[in-house]
Nucleic acid binder design. Structure first.
Length: 488
RNA sequence: CGGGCGGUAGCUUAGCUCGGAAAAGCGCCUGGUUUGGGACCAGGAGACCGCGAGUUCAAAUCUCGCCCGCCCGACCA
């Protein structure tokens, strides 16, 4: 590992080494790989095309999933009247500290009679609006989603991970029965698992949040939790089951088959641009990004190598001979004709994490092949151009699998099972990662873990496990098996 | 939001203590030689020194206020 690190530093010089300072490494990579920047307005970021393209790949995948199961995209207002926001007591109590308010408007900046909240999430505006469209059980379920940005007045910011504005989707659904709403929460949780594992190649723990970590106003919250290369956990998507809490607050009701008035059961669920940060932190190395092929803006970069105009046109016509095959195979590729030396281009695209690079020079043209270099291993292999579209499709698929397998191994290597609080505290003094432990379910014991182990929280409850052991803190019979970690 | 540190060219920084013509490396532009892992030569452009006030004959430098960023903490369910 150490040796590998030292070899790699010969390749990309722009970024702080991960082992030296993970946080600085992260910021360097995000900025040097042109994913995002700060804007000059505190906590507000500029997402640049290379970063946004990854988010777009995620949004396309997720949008397809939810459309497939009958969800529809809506657009609801950015600004929420105070009166609406205040209705669900727990919800507003939870969000109050991070709400930004519009209190003045117009050329003379006149004070508004009723302040408007900039949405931190849209339950409180969708509730009172959606009820218009729900009268009968025949109008249910109402499966809505919106793609937008929200504002939360965070005190401490990090690019992608915690900014005052971020982009996300928020799904809000309304159902005629509790079971159906609970199924919806479970379904979307599994969508998030798929996005994390199948698209971003980040294995996750899927489970339920503890009461203390549950979304304000929810009956329960489901989560998927990934592990970053610094050993900290990151929430990569959440689904909330509200029961009738919001329906009660906003009087969202319908006539059932017996012509009785009944309150809806509702859910909400979201994932955000934070996932771009997750991808950086889950896969990157000392040379920069490693982007999973399925979300990579550029999957294959072609670097032509030549000496003079003659050599250039020879290589160019060689590339033109097979590049259409890549296009036909649906491979996102680019030929780097910039007037730079090949070495610069290698470093440039490695920093940007492009999965596969094809070095193509006169020798390759003669041999009817290209030199393929893998971003993960830097292995070079000769690939014949005959059937190159099919071959690269398979290589990209293999790359995606290798990346996932590597992340699975990392997660496994950084997960342990412990039995006592002393062990947990000692463990987190030395290292990080996930710790499975048993818990009695008491909030006091949970708080004890957090203080004693320095910010360690219950990331998720394993709902399938039936614990037979004792609580890691108090020694009473355990009710839950939980995953502990420090988290972003 | 508290405590500490910082902001000088696109990037990284020197200069600030002790006020007196704004510097360097990288990057960028032009021309040439080069090109299979980060080339070299020559020339050139680029900075209201974060913003605003104050002190002074004179402010990147001293003082005050504000903005932005980094680290630590609180908070973030």
């Amino acid at each position: 590992m150490k040796q590998e690190t030292e070899e790699q530093q010969d390749f990309v010089k722009e970024v702080t080494k991960m082992s030296d300072d993970f946080d600085r490494w992260y910021t360097d990579v995000v900025r040097k790989a042109e994913l995002a920047d700060w804007s000059g307005v505190r906590g507000m970021m500029v997402v640049r095309p290379y970063g946004w393209a990854m988010w777009e790949a995620i949004t396309r995948a997720f949008d397809d999933m939810i459309k497939e199961s009958g969800h529809e995209n809506w657009a609801f207002p950015l600004l929420i009247p105070r009166e609406y926001l205040m209705k669900e007591a727990e919800h507003i109590e939870g969000f109050a500290p991070e709400v930004a308010w519009v209190t003045r408007a117009g050329g003379s900046m006149e004070e508004l009679e009723e302040p408007l909240a900039v949405r931190p999430t849209s339950e409180t505006i969708i509730g009172p609006l959606i009820k218009r469209y729900i009268q009968s059980h025949r109008d249910l379920p109402k499966l809505t989603n919106q793609w937008n940005s929200v504002v939360r007045w965070e005190m401490r910011s990090r690019l992608f991970l915690r900014s005052r504005e971020f982009w996300w989707q928020e799904g809000h659904t309304f159902h005629a029965s509790a079971q159906e709403a609970m199924d919806e929460a479970a379904l979307t949780q599994d969508y998030y698992r798929q996005i994390a594992e199948d698209w971003l190649a980040v294995p996750v723990l899927a489970g339920k949040k503890s009461p203390a970590e549950t979304f304000p106003g929810a009956v329960y919250t489901l989560t998927v939790e990934g592990l970053m290369r610094d050993g900290l956990a990151l929430q990569m998507g959440t689904s909330h089951y509200f029961g009738q809490n919001f329906a009660r607050a906003y009087d969202i009701s319908f006539s059932n088959r017996e012509n009785e008035r009944e309150l809806c059961y509702s859910t909400s669920w979201g994932m955000s641009t934070r996932l771009v940060g997750a991808l950086v932190m889950a896969h990157g190395d000392d040379s920069g990004l490693i982007v999973p092929p399925r979300v990579a803006p550029v999957q294959v970069i072609v670097v032509p190598i030549f000496r003079d105009d003659q050599g250039r046109s020879r290589v160019e016509s060689f590339i033109n001979g097979w590049a259409p095959e890549l296009k036909a195979a649906g491979i996102r590729h680019r030929v780097d004709w910039r007037d730079e030396r090949p070495g610069d281009k290698y470093a440039h695209w490695e920093l940007k994490g492009v999965p596969l690079r094809l070095n193509v020079g006169g020798r390759d043209a003669d041999a009817g092949q290209v030199e393929m270099v893998d971003r993960l291993t830097r292995e070079k292999v000769a690939v014949p151009v005959a059937g190159i579209g099919k071959r690269l499709t398979a290589e990209l698929d293999g790359f995606q699998k290798k990346l996932f397998a590597r992340a699975v191994k990392f997660q496994r290597d950084n997960t342990v099972e412990l039995e006592t609080l002393d062990e947990v505290v000692a463990h987190f003094r030395e290292r990080s990662g996930f710790v499975w432990a048993q818990w009695c379910g008491d909030g006091e014991e949970e708080a004890r873990i957090k203080t004693d182990a320095g910010g360690v929280t219950i990331r998720t409850i394993d709902e399938k496990a039936k614990p037979s052991g004792r609580c890691v803190v108090c020694g009473k019979p355990a009710k839950f098996r939980v995953a502990l970690a420090k988290a972003y």
